[in-house]
C-alpha cells in the first residue's frame, strides 16, 4: 500500500481516505479530506493558504532542508523483500523519527528566540500609551502603582524618603 501526499496540504493520504480528481490530461490531484478538496475547487493556491505545508515551508515556519527528509521519498521500483532489511528499516524509522522531531523542536526554538522580549517590549509600550484609558491621569498622579516598573523605582525611592520622615 502506498501512502500518498495530499496535493493541497501535503499531509499523508492513507488508503481509503479522501478523494482524487483526475484532470483530462491525466494529472491526478489527491486530497486527504473534503476540506482540501473544497479549497482546491475554490481555486485557492496552497502557497497562499496559511495552514498548508507549502505555505509554512515557503515562509520559513517549518524546517525545509534536513537529511531526515531524504528517507521519505517516492520510489517507483518496488524493493525486493528481505527479512533482515525490513527489520532494520523498522528500527531505523523510529530512530529517524526521533531525530527529526528533535531537530524540528530545535528549529522552532530558534525561530521563537527573542519572542518573549519582543512581547514584553510591546506590552510596555501599550501600557505607557494606553494607561489613561484605564485610570484617569489625576488618579495616577496620586497613586502610581499602575505605571511602568521604571517609574516604580522612583516611587520606592519616595517611599523610603517618606519612611525616613516618619521616623
Amino acid at each position: 500500500m502506498r501512502l500518498e501526499k495530499c496535493w493541497f496540504c501535503s499531509s499523508t493520504v492513507y488508503p481509503g481516505h479522501g478523494i482524487q480528481f483526475v484532470r483530462n490530461d491525466a494529472k491526478i490531484f489527491r486530497f486527504c479530506r473534503s476540506k482540501c478538496h473544497k479549497n482546491f475547487k475554490m481555486k485557492r493556491n496552497p502557497r497562499k493558504v496559511k495552514w498548508t505545508k507549502a505555505y509554512r515551508r515557503l515562509h520559513g515556519k517549518d524546517m525545509t532542508q534536513d537529511s531526515t527528509f531524504e528517507f521519505e521519498r517516492k520510489r517507483n521500483r518496488p524493493e525486493r523483500y528481505d527479512r533482515n532489511l525490513a527489520e532494520n528499516t523498522l528500527k531505523a524509522i523510529k530512530k529517524i523519527d526521533k531525530i527529526r522531531v528533535a531537530r524540528e523542536e530545535r528549529h522552532h526554538k530558534l525561530r521563537m528566540k527573542g519572542k518573549k522580549a519582543k512581547e514584553q517590549k510591546e506590552a510596555a509600550i501599550e501600557l505607557e500609551q494606553g494607561i489613561h484609558l484605564v485610570k484617569a491621569p489625576s488618579v495616577l498622579a496620586q497613586d502610581q502603582s499602575l505605571t511602568l516598573p521604571k517609574i516604580k523605582v522612583k516611587v520606592q525611592a519616595q517611599a523610603e524618603e517618606n519612611q525616613a520622615m516618619e521616623e
Binding site: 495530499c6 483530462n24 490531484f29 482546491f40 507549502a54
Partner: peptide, 30 residues
C-alpha cells in the same frame, strides 16, 4: 505514466506542488 500502478498508487504531489500550483484545473469541470 511509466511509474503508475493499478492500485491507484500514482505519484506526483510534492513535485506537483512546486511546478503546477499556478496551473489549477481548468474552469471546464466546474
Amino acid at each position: 505514466r511509466v511509474g503508475r500502478s493499478l492500485l491507484g498508487g500514482l505519484g506526483n504531489n510534492l513535485s506537483g506542488l512546486s511546478s503546477t500550483s499556478h496551473e489549477m484545473a481548468s474552469g471546464n469541470f466546474l
